[in-house]
Nucleic acid binder design. Structure first.
Lengths: 190, 190
DNA sequence: TTTTTTTTGGAACATTCATTCTATAATTAT
DNA sequence: ATAATTATAGAATGAATGTTCCAAAAAAAA
């Protein structure tokens, strides 16, 4: 009956994601996407819907990938080491000039766009839950003090990603990021 | 010789600042500014220059005001109390749906726009310096442990504004913000 | 009052924006 | 091979963008 797509929608979605990741939603034009995804306009609209829908799919893709990465840290070692690994990894293997899409989006769109806000919020809650479970195990294992509240600590850690990314954008100084990360983790452990 | 402006440039600049503050740079159109500032296009261009220049002036205005507010906290009470006051005040008296323009701008523009980045960075350094001086005094007064580095702590506190604002955007939960603020301050004091 | 200068209002501008349309090419199933 | 269906390419669309221009109004200084 019909013809097949000459491209892999998943793979091209990642290209779109990388464009939004770099320039943000508003500053990325449809022309940028046509060029960057190496796709015709019609193919983009046909496959993903309009710009907003495309962005949502990029965000979902990003969130899913990030959560998977974080969950992978859980099995490796002790709970507290897994937490450390998650926090340090978040920024360590970033590409130059790329800032976490979730954090970026929180500030560019979440306050004005309820759909986007819900998406970001749900991803945040997922990650916070992963952290909270690790911290509860860590507490039981005596790796963190008994007076710490794993829920609050998990939310604090999640929020700290925003700190680290902002400082990375402004100062681009690995030593500074390490010092801040050390303090953040120390504040959990003792 | 010539006619005078029928408006107060400073006052209208604050209106522009509030618009950018709410919607961000890219999402605020020149038409929004014409409507919001209640000025003619020509008057805007004649007085402030183009959109980018206008935004820079808004940012300067914001930074100057913020720094003044923070410095005012310094005289009031003990160094550590001043630090607490600065951190708590930052979010406490926010308007609904408004997120710190500096933090917002860090994520929307700073990574792509060197001029804007420098402006935000310099304001950050100014505020960090205020915090650092307070923390040094606090250390001398024995209000914070001797092993803390005032410089690192000051940068940590500045970075924490970003955390708090992100969580405010996503969750809009005063209790959550208070819990996080408590933890942030406790991590400095002990 | 007259002259000079600048603000002002609003139209006009060129560009870019997201989106849609049309015609053609391609490919699968019959 | 033929028919049916969909992807593709790129032009076309109309709205919105930031910016400039021009004539008229205003007011300060002569």
């Amino acid at each position: 009956m019909a013809r097949n797509k000459a491209f892999d929608p998943e793979e091209r979605l990642e290209k779109a994601r990388d464009l939004f990741w770099q320039k943000g939603y508003n500053a990325t034009s449809m022309q940028d996407l046509v060029d960057g995804m190496q796709l015709n306009r019609a193919s983009i609209y046909d496959t993903y819907g309009d710009k907003h829908a495309l962005f949502q799919q990029c965000l979902s893709n990003y969130a899913k990938q990030a959560l998977k990465d974080y969950k992978q840290c859980c099995q490796v070692c002790s709970p507290i080491a897994a937490v450390e690994h998650i926090v340090r990894k978040a920024i360590a293997n970033r590409k130059e000039g790329q800032t976490c899409l979730m954090v970026k989006t929180s500030f560019e769109l979440a306050s004005m766009d309820q759909e986007i806000k819900d998406l970001v919020k749900n991803q945040a809650l997922d990650l916070i839950y992963v952290l909270q479970e690790l911290l509860e195990k860590a507490k039981q294992a005596g790796e963190i003090p008994a007076d710490k509240d794993p829920g609050v600590m998990a939310r604090f850690l999640y929020s700290s990603f925003s700190s680290l990314w902002m400082m990375d954008v402004l100062f681009n100084d690995k030593q500074l990021i390490d010092q801040l990360t050390d303090h953040i983790l120390r504040s959990i452990r003792q």
